[in-house]
């Protein structure tokens, strides 16, 4: 935490944490291990009514007739990829909560205008959990000179998001979440291999990479939002074991 600096960015106007590296100043990212207990992930495969809200499939519809475009934009800009992880009561998560408070304090100490969003202590099955998300879109008014980046094929194979963005929304690289598998080599090396997001299942052991980004909410007021940058599969072994035991149990019961 002592190495963190608060840097101001334009387009979108944000405050971000940075660290000095041999390659220069880079945005600070944090890794959180845990077991997936809830997820709303791509691909986007079907459409639902904008007024109907976001269900588990995170799908949307395009309907700009009868002046409904504003409503669609308001709905679309909140669409997000989301994960929730648990450590089943491991003391690690209590420690991480304290670390997160330290990180928030770095923002507070470096600005007079930081409005810290109350971090509710969230529980899943009675134990501390964390959830992180990343929106698919950024509003063009916040990034007027930045070029739109097409959605990856594995995220938007039917071009539903692409057709939805219209003139008001953009997809930036920073709206992307990197989906991958963490692979350990025999020589102790570590690499991350791209993985289709549809392969992630509840019960998988994963590593999240998150950043803390301060977004403006009012004039000279910001709010800190933990943002999901990457989701890496560490192991699906325990999930598969539990599924196997469930199958065997059902077989025994006929």
């Amino acid at each position: 935490v002592s190495a963190l600096k608060v840097e101001s960015f334009d387009e979108p106007k944000t405050l971000r944490l940075a660290v000095d590296t041999p390659d220069g100043l880079e945005e600070a990212a944090f890794r959180v291990p845990g077991f997936l207990c809830s997820k709303t992930l791509p691909p986007i495969l079907r459409s639902v009514c904008a007024r109907g809200g976001i269900d588990g499939s995170a799908s949307v519809t395009i309907d700009d007739r009868d002046g409904r475009r504003n409503e669609v934009v308001e709905h679309a800009k909140k669409l997000r990829q989301h994960v929730k992880v648990t450590a089943f009561g491991s003391t690690l998560y209590s420690t991480l909560q304290e670390k997160a408070a330290d990180i928030f304090k770095v923002f507070e100490d470096n600005s007079h205008h930081i409005n810290i969003r109350p971090s509710d202590r969230k529980l899943w099955d009675g134990e501390i959990c964390f959830d992180f998300h990343s929106r698919y879109f950024t509003e063009r008014k916040h990034v007027p000179s930045v070029k739109h980046a097409p959605f990856p094929q594995e995220v938007d194979p039917l071009h539903i998001l692409e057709d939805l963005k219209g003139e008001d929304l953009l997809h930036l690289e920073e709206n992307d979440v990197q989906y991958c598998e963490k692979v350990y080599g025999d020589d102790g090396s570590v690499s991350y291999v791209a993985m289709d997001p549809k392969k992630f299942q509840v019960g998988d052991f994963v590593e999240l990479t998150v950043t803390f980004v301060c977004h403006p909410v009012k004039k000279n007021e910001f709010v800190v939002i933990p943002t999901l940058r990457a989701l890496a599969l560490l192991s699906s072994e325990l999930r598969q074991q539990s599924e196997q035991r469930l199958r065997e149990s059902r077989d025994r019961q006929g």
Binding site: P33, G34, F35, C37, A87, F88, G89, S90, L92, V202, G203, F205, E207, L234, S235, L238, R239, Q241, S242, E243, R245, L246, S249
Partner: peptide
């Protein structure tokens, strides 16, 4: 997660991750 998911094994896996 189904009823056969072993939380003890899960906590052990997290501990192993931290050690590495």
């Amino acid at each position: 997660m189904n009823r056969f998911f072993d939380a003890n094994d899960a906590r052990a896996q997290i501990a192993k991750y931290i050690m590495n």
